[in-house]
Design a protein around this nucleic acid. Structure first.
Length: 140
DNA sequence: AGCCTTTGACCAGCG
DNA sequence: TCGCTGGTCAAAGGC
């Protein structure tokens, strides 16, 4: 499969949006990190960061504030109020892909079905305050 | 037949 | 008070 030429997906090399608005809650999902190649045949194609959960796209919009496209995903589970937002540049998606997680999953991942942790609330144990996807402002 | 994906329009909140 | 942006819902089409 020579589709994904850039395995660097969740690497938001964009850092912060230099806007100054309210920060979003970004969490780093479980280990199951796959990449689903999405695209047409030729043209711009990028890999969507898969966290092992199932998402349903319910909207997409172009955020002019950051000059990026934003896709809105929602967890397939009604029991789960987890939401996911994916931002990417219309020209360099694989170079500026950013994933923002909102809320936490109240169920185990379908990929790891059968091996639930029991608690279930062990999903949102990350710092949803300043957790960035690799592109943290804490350049140090 | 069922489910998912895509686009548009509408609504709410904030400046 | 008006305008703008972001976010969500709904409907239609395609697989």
């Amino acid at each position: 499969m020579a589709s994904n030429s850039q395995p660097t997906t969740t690497t938001g090399a964009g850092g912060r949006n230099g806007h100054g608005d309210k920060e979003e809650a970004e969490q780093t999902p479980p280990p199951p990190e796959e990449a689903t190649t999405v695209g047409g045949g030729d043209g711009v194609q990028f890999v969507m960061p898969e966290d092992g959960y199932e998402w349903k796209k319910y909207g997409q919009k172009f955020i002019k504030n950051i000059q990026k496209n934003r896709s809105y995903f929602r967890c397939r589970e009604q029991r789960c109020g987890a939401k996911k937002k994916v931002e990417w540049h219309p020209h360099d998606p694989s170079l500026n892909l950013r994933v923002v997680y909102d809320g936490a999953h109240q169920h185990g991942s379908p990929s790891a079905a059968g091996e639930e942790g029991g608690g279930g609330a062990t999903a949102n144990q990350y710092d949803l305050s300043t957790q960035y996807f690799g592109g943290g402002p804490r350049s140090h």
